[in-house]
Computed example of a mutant assay.
Amino acid sequence: MRNSPITGWAAGVPYTALPPATDGPAPLIVTWHMLDAPRSDAAFAAALPMEELPAWRVHLGMPMCGLRMVDGSMDAGLALVQQDPLMSFLHPFVAQATEEFPAALAALREQLPVDDGPIGVLGGSLGGAVALRVLADTQTPVFAAAVVNAAIRMRSVVDLFPGDYPYDEQSAKAVDSLDFLPRAEVLARRAPLLVVSGELDHPALRADALALVEAAGDRAELLSIPGLAHPLAEEPGIEPAPQSPTARAVDLGLTRWFRRYLAAVSAGTSIAPR
């Protein structure tokens, strides 16, 4: 089938690509999945396919997830969490996913019939931190961005782990580098931003979502999803699964959001100041 998922590797990064219904070059939306369920590119593609968009949706695999799991399980990642949740797990995962993105994007442009215009970016949970870092710390042209139950302030994520984290100078610098509230104006200048927040998400993460929208001003919008906790799928969340009702609500909101700005991209209209 023409619209069946396409799987491959882009500069060492696994991906699941969903093609648009129309032929010919089309805009590109790149996503990074959660480390909660759905925790692979294939599972994230099933949870949030955004099927009605006239664009390629390419879901990249996060480090040590999906096809990059060690020995086919998440055990190696869990060991890193136990070693040091911030410096061995959260920070290096976001750093690696961000650093490998430019080469992956170049490879995707060679492998798939995508146009060479600005892209859309989407991230869920820890993948949300990657999408925000692409906005804040790279020059990649972006026509619209969205995050879902995102890691907006990494200190809030670290606080979800048991015990008091023993910050030192290095770890404090690392965690603050992944605090996007102080950079809300930068994010807003780069691209319009949709912040999707489950009403049952972790309270601190939901508070961060509301704070980011307020700080970013009229370039950001909040989409609250009733009944949505943090995950978008049932465990184990590695293989594609039927879309849940709450994931469907997120999917519809994302589709409306990206469709709004895809129309401007197709017309050659500038979306955000560069």
Rank of each mutant, 00 (worst) to 15 (best):
V13N: 02
V13D: 02
P14R: 12
Y15G: 11
T16Y: 06
A17F: 15
A17E: 14
A17T: 10
A17Q: 14
L18R: 04
L18I: 03
P19L: 05
P19Q: 02
P20K: 07
P20E: 14
P20V: 06
A21W: 02
A21P: 13
A21F: 02
T22I: 10
T22V: 07
T22R: 07
D23S: 15
G24M: 15
A26N: 09
P27K: 01
L28S: 00
V30P: 00
V30G: 01
V30I: 10
T31W: 07
T31R: 05
T31G: 13
T31L: 09
T31S: 10
W32C: 00
W32M: 01
H33A: 02
H33P: 00
H33I: 00
H33T: 01
M34Q: 11
M34E: 15
L35M: 14
L35S: 11
L35V: 15
L35K: 09
L35N: 13
D36S: 09
D36Q: 15
D36P: 15
D36W: 13
A37H: 07
A37N: 12
A37R: 07
A37W: 01
P38K: 03
P38Q: 08
P38N: 06
P38C: 05
R39T: 15
S40G: 04
S40V: 05
D41W: 01
A42W: 01
A42L: 06
A42N: 05
A42E: 10
A43F: 15
A45R: 11
A46F: 04
A46E: 06
A46D: 10
A46W: 07
A46K: 08
A46R: 04
A47F: 11
L48R: 06
P49I: 03
M50W: 06
